[in-house]
């Protein structure tokens, strides 16, 4: 089926229920890319969040909730439910959360903090992660096919299903 390829930028998301659609995000560094997919309803989405907590700038979070894990994640799931997805059927995959090389200094460990806050929110809401590729120093690309639910992860020129 003919579909549209959506490119999700930093602090943005896309939900689709059109089987031919493909949703991609490029250059995940410390940011997290989260894909969700309901294979029965054929609804899926991709979220690209930057930072853990919206408390650093409430006005920014108001203008763009997708910037932060705490404001973006719940809204993302709610929009998928509104499009027909059912929580118990969702396949959730996570990639990104890389950090710069460190000398043990955690000020730059935004990737790790993003991941910790995400895991905490998933735990509180009984959401299981089907696959994740998180941490290290790699740049990653994430791609979700709405029809098949296939998720492709790219890094250093190599793409694999995950």
């Amino acid at each position: 089926m003919e579909g549209v390829k959506y490119i999700v930028g930093v602090a943005d998301m896309k939900i689709s229920n059109v089987p031919g659609d493909v949703i991609v995000t490029h250059a995940l560094g410390s940011c997290l890319g989260i894909t969700i997919h309901d294979p029965v309803a054929q609804v899926g989405g991709l979220l690209h969040v930057m930072m853990p907590y919206s408390s650093i700038d409430r006005a920014k979070a108001e203008a763009n909730p997708w910037m932060f894990v705490d404001t973006g994640l719940s809204k993302f799931f709610l929009e998928a439910y509104a499009a027909g997805a059912v929580k118990g059927r969702l396949q959730v995959k996570v990639a990104g959360g890389a950090n710069v090389q460190s000398n043990g200094d955690d000020r730059f460990a935004i990737g790790t903090r993003n991941h910790i806050v995400l895991r905490k929110m998933f735990l509180q809401n009984n959401i299981l992660i089907a696959a994740e590729d998180v941490g290290g120093t790699a740049a990653r690309t994430l791609c979700l096919e709405i029809g098949s639910g296939r998720v492709l992860l790219g890094s250093r020129g190599v793409e694999r299903e995950f």
């Binding site: 930093v10 490029h26 250059a27 995940l28 560094g29 410390s30 940011c31 930057m50 890389a98 950090n99 710069v100 090389q101 460190s102 000398n103 730059f108 935004i110 990737g111 290290g136 120093t137 790699a138 740049a139 890094s155 250093r156 020129g157």
Partner: peptide, 14 residues
């Protein structure tokens, strides 16, 4: 870190 101009070398900078 936020992916602007992040190349295939990733975050291998200190």
């Amino acid at each position: 870190m936020f992916g602007m101009g992040l190349g295939q070398e990733g975050l291998q900078y200190r």
